[in-house]
C-alpha cells in the first residue's frame, strides 16, 4: 500500500511501544488515582492535604515539563542516591533510569492526578446505603470495596476514565521528545531522513485513531458490564 522506504518494521515497533506505554501508564494512573482518591476521602488531614497538593501541582504544570523533570532529574536523583549508598557501603553501583519506565511513571503520576478527581466524584455518587449494608453484613473494608464500592463506582467513573485515557494516549507522543522510540519518534526520524513528512506522519496519526477505535469497543463492553442492575430497570 504505502512504500515506507524501509521504515515499515520500525514504525510497527514504534506503534507497539506506544500501545504498551499507553496501557501500562493507564494501569499506573488507575492505581495511583484510586489511592489518591481514597486519601482525599479519608479522615486524616495529613493524607488529605498531601493528596490535594499533589493534584494541584500536577494540574498546574505541562505534561512535557513534568516528564523532563522526572526523566532528566530522575537520573541525577538516582545517581545522587547511589553515590550516597556507595560512599556509605563502599560499593560501586550505578542504576540507569530506563526511559520507558520513566515514561510509564511520569504518565502514571500525571494522569493519576486526573483519575483521582474522577474517582472521587464517582465515590460520592455511590449511595451511602450500599456501603452501609456491606458493613452491616460483616464485610471487611477490603471486601466491601471489592464487592460493592468498586463495581458501583465504576459505572460513574467510566466516562471520566475514558476521557482521561484518550488524553493520556495522545500524551504518550511526548516521550518521543525525551528520546523514546515510539511511533512519533520513528516518524520524526524517517521524515528527517527522507523529507516525506506526509508519508510518515499521516499513518501515525491514523494509528492513534485506530487505537482510539479499539478502546472505544472495550469501553462499550465495560459500560455494559458495570451497567448491570441499572439499565434493565423496568
Amino acid at each position: 500500500m504505502f512504500d515506507f522506504q524501509g521504515y515499515g518494521p520500525r514504525l510497527l515497533e514504534g506503534a507497539w511501544l506506544t500501545a504498551e506505554l499507553a496501557v501500562l501508564s493507564l494501569i499506573a494512573a488507575l492505581v495511583i488515582g484510586l489511592m489518591v482518591a481514597s486519601a482525599k476521602s479519608s479522615r486524616s488531614m495529613t493524607l488529605k492535604s498531601v493528596a490535594t497538593v499533589y493534584t494541584t501541582l500536577i494540574r498546574g504544570v505541562p505534561d512535557l515539563v513534568m516528564m523532563m523533570l522526572l526523566f532528566y532529574g530522575g537520573q541525577i536523583g538516582m545517581n545522587m542516591a547511589t553515590d550516597g549508598l556507595n560512599a556509605w557501603l563502599g560499593t560501586d553501583m550505578f542504576i540507569n533510569v530506563n526511559a520507558f519506565a520513566a515514561g510509564v511513571v511520569t504518565l502514571g503520576v500525571i494522569y493519576g492526578a486526573y483519575m483521582s478527581e474522577t474517582f472521587r466524584g464517582a465515590f460520592l455518587a455511590v449511595d451511602a446505603g450500599q456501603m452501609e449494608a456491606a458493613r452491616a453484613y460483616g464485610m471487611s473494608p477490603w471486601l466491601a470495596f471489592r464487592r460493592v464500592r468498586f463495581p458501583l463506582m465504576m459505572r460513574h467513573a467510566l466516562p471520566g476514565i475514558n476521557n482521561n485515557w484518550l488524553v493520556l494516549l495522545k500524551s504518550t507522543a511526548l516521550v518521543s521528545i525525551i528520546g523514546l522510540s515510539d511511533m512519533v519518534y520513528v516518524a520524526d526520524q524517517a521524515t528527517k531522513a527522507t523529507h516525506q513528512p506526509f508519508l510518515f506522519m499521516l499513518p501515525v496519526g491514523l494509528g492513534y485513531l485506530a487505537i482510539t477505535a479499539v478502546s472505544e469497543l472495550v469501553v462499550t463492553g465495560l459500560k455494559r458490564r458495570f451497567d448491570v442492575g441499572f439499565s434493565q430497570a423496568t
Binding site: E132, A133, G138, S140, P141, L152, F226, V228, G229
Partner: peptide, 23 residues
C-alpha cells in the same frame, strides 16, 4: 474491627431504604 465484623454477621439488619446492592 475483626470482632465487629464477626458480630455484625450474626446480627442481620434490614434497612428502611432496603439497601439491596444495586449491581
Amino acid at each position: 474491627w475483626k470482632q465487629v465484623e464477626r458480630i455484625r454477621s450474626r446480627l442481620a439488619m434490614v434497612f428502611q431504604g432496603f439497601n439491596l446492592w444495586a449491581h
